[in-house]
Amino acid sequence: MIFAITIYGEAGVFEALPKERQDEVLSGHTALQEVLAQRGEFVSIKLMPPTSAVMVEAAGNTGAAPLITDGPFSETKESFLGFYAAEFKDLDEALEYAKMISSPVARLEVRPVAWAGGAISSE
């Protein structure tokens, strides 16, 4: 079963950490990517800061072109930073792997994937 490990946190906090702490966090990610690569296909994505985002919203009128707005508007709380997705035996195993990237700068969520296409497929 494919599980996603999604990462939430406050943008900018990681950047404000001293170099050694940043390296600690990154070493967890490097280790996880190495083991996942040995196991088979996986996806890992780190998003750019939310400041770079543009929103596409459906227009009120049917048939009208979607609205493109610059956003999202100033959220002081945590935002979506990135995710991993890979095949795991079960939830317990996915949780074990998620622990490798646990750190105070991020809140992790492990969730089964209902459908996946592209580089890794749920088919």
Binding site: G12, A16, L17, R21, T76
Partner: peptide
């Protein structure tokens, strides 16, 4: 832990 807290304070300081 305290490094992370410091980083949070730095991040929140301008708004606060």
């Amino acid at each position: 832990m305290s490094d992370w807290l410091e980083a949070t304070f730095v991040q929140q300081r301008p708004r606060a």
